[in-house]
Design a protein around this nucleic acid. Structure first.
Lengths: 195, 195
DNA sequence: GATATAATATACCGACCGGTACGTTATGGA
DNA sequence: TCCATAACGTACCGGTCGGTATATTATATC
């Protein structure tokens, strides 16, 4: 079926290596030499398999959203509003406490600031971050309809609060916060939840 | 008194320009060409006046802590624990809503991730961030002694929560959050405060 | 086995990075 | 007036950046 010389490396495994590098060093802090060394492939192989650096980063973001940060979807599937909030906040605790994961959140610090060349990647991560807030808002609106969130509650405000906590925890985790530190933040944060 | 040819630029004004540039683009995202163009000085003048790029960044951090983010000290001087928390959280709202300031927080995204070369600057900002948490913790311990914080309250946990909120708001501000978005986060966040 | 196809390895590109050598120019002190 | 001092402008340094041209090698199809 496939013509030509077969690829000698596993693209999925290589993408995982790239993701972990971007996760640790950010988009601009990760060089092509870093990538090819860690992925153990040559530069033309990287370009043939993934496109350029930006396209590789986008593929990494997809993978991160879909597989690595999947606890978010699980939290949104929880049966009521409080369980959604707990799932997000304590899920983030577990996520950032997993020793297999690099510190912090790729979507937060992977491309938050940088030179003008990386503007497109910054807007991309920014869009995905606001997408998460929108999903949470929708879920909380649904909770309000279902009656497990008070009528006085503001879904958009609560969603904004939740993502702010998640991003604050991500910054703390990137700064070396221990699991116990994150759990303490989570416990206090849940005290703000209505009802 | 001073020998030699007099300096033709205002070092304080140039430092302000440098601060705003680092604030927008981060340590690694800001190049020396960016700096000299914006500060309107030549490269050797920059090195003579401020040392190298790292030393310039450290001077910028000092200035940021001392003058720009001074609302933090004002908050810590508030008369009771709740006023401290409100001063920090709503002070951050005002700080990030000031149109004269670049988006976000230099201490958070100025050097959060990056290549190996910038490790020293990352640890520097990290140390300053944890220093803020320590100062808040001390202030809340004092509040507990003074009786304006319940004996059941955990100063370290509350301080960790406060800085997490501040950093989450900083990330949101860097992503283009509007003043009203920040105020909503702040309002929900204060609901977690004890008593 | 010949051929088309695609992945490999090597070596290179111009541009930019942080940093500096060097000659010139403007000041204060003797 | 002459000199020491220090800031200026220019032009450059080796190294690294993201990206690619070229030639070689390994497979599937005919």
């Amino acid at each position: 079926m496939t013509l030509g010389r077969p690829r000698e490396f596993d693209t999925e495994a290589a993408l995982t290596k790239a993701m972990r590098l971007f996760w640790r060093k950010g988009y601009e802090g990760t060089s092509l030499s870093d990538l090819t060394t860690e992925m153990n492939i040559t530069r033309p192989s990287l370009y043939a398999a993934f496109g350029n650096k930006q396209e590789l980063f986008l593929k990494v973001l997809d993978r991160y959203d879909r597989e690595t940060a999947a606890f978010i979807q699980a939290a949104l599937d929880a049966p009521n509003a409080r369980a959604v909030a707990e799932g997000l906040i304590f899920g983030a605790c577990a996520f950032h406490s997993d020793k297999h994961n690099p510190a912090g959140c790729l979507m937060v610090h992977g491309a938050l600031v940088g030179s003008d060349e990386s503007l497109a990647m910054r807007t991309e991560t920014s869009l995905r971050r606001s997408g998460l807030k929108d999903r949470i808002t929708q879920r909380l609106k649904q909770a309000k309809v279902q009656g497990d969130l008070p009528q006085s509650a503001d879904p958009a405000a609560l969603a904004g609060y939740l993502v702010a906590i998640l991003r604050g925890m991500a910054v703390e985790a990137a700064s070396g916060a221990r699991p116990v530190d994150l759990k303490r933040i989570a416990a206090v944060a849940m005290a703000a939840w209505p009802e």
